[in-house]
Amino acid sequence: MHFKELIACCVLMVGPAQANDVGITKGLMNVTVQTADGVVDITRNQDPNARLQEPWTQTSRPCPNFCIQPMIPAPGVAPVGELEVLEFLQREDAVLVDGRLRTDYDKATIPGAISIPYTQAADRLDELGCEIDFDGWICSDAAPIVVLFCNGPWCGQSPTAARRMIAAGYPAEKIRYYRGGMQSWNMLGLTVHPGNG
């Protein structure tokens, strides 16, 4: 084999490996989730020159209504980041809930998320395994862990959903809050897709 042929061979072997340099973590390139539309692989955008698109590039929004949200929106609720969201998407005892208005969900959401707008959070606990009674909702120990998110650290929709769910009877210790929401998800180049109907 000539030197030029050897170099061409090596370039071809290295090429595909470099095409997937942008991993989720050092050893994790993708996470596969089941959605209502079928299986989706969550990856990061492989283009190192990719940039955020509107509305995710906007840094300043008027407060109120778009004030910076606390890491813990209610006592007992635990904050999570992207890696924990990906982990919860793999669990059968957890549900990822997009607390934004349905129109935002329909445009783009995290694969595997269901839509329960913050305005309906206290009224749809039956979808999370709770039963209605005369005094509100009864949520058993079998109720899933709910991971709530909305548009980002300045969005109050999922914190409001968490507080409304707790007031209606959902256990706070079963709620997680992904404060980074869609802005952080998009900033990291993670897969999004339209809501499932």
Rank of each mutant, 00 (worst) to 15 (best):
L188F: 07
D133Q: 12
V11R: 14
S60F: 02
M29K: 15
L28C: 10
K4M: 05
V14Q: 10
L101I: 06
P144G: 09
Q120K: 12
T25L: 11
N20W: 10
G27H: 13
A36Q: 15
L188R: 15
K174Y: 09
A36M: 11
N20T: 12
L12Q: 13
G38Y: 11
H193I: 09
A167I: 00
L89M: 07
V31W: 05
T57D: 01
V14Y: 08
C9Q: 14
Q34A: 13
F66M: 04
M182N: 02
R164A: 14
E54L: 06
N20G: 12
F3R: 15
A8H: 07
E84K: 11
P62K: 06
L83N: 14
L128F: 05
F88P: 00
C155L: 00
A143T: 12
K174W: 06
C139D: 10
P55H: 03
Y118Q: 13
E173C: 00
N186R: 12
I24E: 08
I145C: 01
V192G: 01
A50L: 01
Q46R: 06
V33S: 10
G76T: 07
V95S: 06
D141I: 00
T43C: 05
M165T: 13
M13R: 11
K26M: 11
T109Q: 07
L6S: 14
D133S: 08
Q157K: 11
Y105R: 04
P55G: 03
A172S: 15
A113R: 08
M165P: 14
N65S: 09
K4W: 05
Q53Y: 00
L6C: 10
A19T: 07
I116R: 05
I114A: 04
I24F: 03
A143R: 08
R100C: 02
P194L: 03
A113V: 05
Q183I: 01
G189H: 05
F149I: 04
A168E: 07
I175P: 13
G38V: 08
G169Y: 03
L86K: 08
C155P: 04
A113Y: 04
M165V: 11
V11H: 03
L28G: 03
N65H: 04
A78T: 15
D21R: 13
A94H: 04
T35C: 11
V40N: 05
R124A: 02
R163V: 09
G27Q: 11
Y118D: 12
V77R: 09
S158L: 03
E5V: 01
D98K: 05
A50H: 12
A167C: 00
P73K: 05
Q69C: 04
P55T: 03
Y178S: 02
I110T: 10
R44C: 10
I116S: 07
A167L: 03
L83K: 12
D106I: 11
I116C: 06
Y118R: 07
Q69A: 08
D98C: 08
E5K: 12
G38R: 13
F134S: 14
G99Q: 06
D104Q: 13
P75E: 08
T191E: 02
A143F: 06
P73D: 04
G99S: 15
A74Q: 11
A8E: 14
H193V: 04
G81T: 05
N186E: 07
A108Y: 02
R176Y: 13
V95K: 13
L128M: 09
I7H: 01
E82Q: 10
T109I: 01
G27K: 13
